[in-house]
């Protein structure tokens, strides 16, 4: 499998990348980790006219916590996994990054690419929905901050303009009493998800769920937020009945397709089951358990 020819340019900085993309007449494509894009190019299903390589752009690979957690778009999955701040305070991100593809792919793949590629089977979208993250995009007109709820438009489609670049992901600081978990079901390591569920909860002093947010992988053309499930959880104690009701609601909000990874009705059940388990794990983490 051999990709078709393309022009290639190394971006010196973000401004350079934006300029290169703008000059490509809509045929340009950002090359970050390339772990989704290059296989598509080898099938010749993607034939971009210009690849703008942003891997040498400085300042996109940092992880900082300064009020909120800021993750550069070029941070590799393996580095996200190994980061001390992330390991200590954002176990849901560790859950997520560790189930993406396989360890070798994670050495190249970037968190920005995982989001910008907008494959409904990718794992970060659901987690970012649950974390109420926002993404920072820069284009010819400057920088904008996009709430994650507004970021995904459709399969492989985000609100990013062809000459806009995703530069950073911002995640609100984990609140006191907060905890989260991401669970994914896959046939084998490296396969696309059958389904995945990210759950974040904030527990109050009385042991009730003060806030909850749930993102679902492979639930339709994009990852979705299970808002009804969130509503059910809010203000309730995390008993079996409440969790079961929330999980059923999350499945009800999902619209997976039948494919090689299972019939749609099966996936709905998996979403329900994973939602229950993810909520339980999130609650356990929020209340000091592992």
């Amino acid at each position: 499998m051999i990709p078709a020819s393309f022009e290639y340019a190394v971006a010196r900085d973000v401004a350079d990348a934006i300029q290169l993309l703008g000059s490509s007449g809509g045929e340009g494509k950002v090359l970050a980790g390339g772990q989704s894009l290059i296989p598509l190019m080898k099938f010749r299903l993607a034939q971009p006219g210009l690849l703008v390589d942003i891997n040498r752009v400085k300042g996109l690979s940092d992880i900082r916590e300064n009020g909120e957690l800021r993750i550069g778009a070029l941070v590799r999955e393996a580095d996200l996994d190994m980061n001390a701040i992330v390991r200590e305070r954002y176990p849901i991100l560790v859950d997520t990054t560790r189930v993406i593809a396989d360890p070798l792919v994670r050495n190249m793949a970037t968190i920005g690419g995982n989001l910008a590629h907008a494959d409904p089977a990718n794992d970060h979208p659901a987690t970012m929905l649950a974390l109420r993250a926002s993404v920072v995009a820069r284009g010819p007109k400057g920088e904008r901050v996009i709430p994650i709820d507004e970021f995904f438009v459709d399969t492989f489609t985000t609100v990013l303009a062809p000459d806009e670049i995703l530069t950073e992901i911002r995640i609100p600081k984990r609140p006191a009493g907060g905890g989260g978990a991401y669970l994914k079901l896959e046939r084998k390591v490296g396969d696309f998800a059958i389904a995945g569920v990210a759950a974040m909860v904030v527990m109050d002093e009385k042991g009730r769920i003060a806030a909850a947010s749930i993102g679902v992988t492979n639930a339709g053309p994009t990852a979705i937020r299970a808002r009804k499930a969130e509503d059910i959880l809010r203000g309730q104690s995390p008993d079996d009945k409440t969790i079961a009701a929330a999980a059923a609601a999350a499945a009800g909000e999902s619209k997976p397709w039948s494919d090689l990874r299972g019939p749609a009705e099966y996936k709905l059940d998996v979403i329900r089951v994973l939602t229950q388990r993810a909520i339980r794990k999130a609650v356990a983490r929020a209340t000091g358990g592992k």
């Binding site: 299903l45 494959d119 409904p120 089977a121 459709d154 399969t155 492989f156 053309p221 397709w257 039948s258």
Partner: peptide
């Protein structure tokens, strides 16, 4: 062919759209 094979996962959605 190739589009169907590689895109089977997303075909329904794409064609629908």
């Amino acid at each position: 062919g190739m589009i169907q094979q590689v895109g089977a996962r997303l075909m329904q959605g794409a064609a629908d759209k």
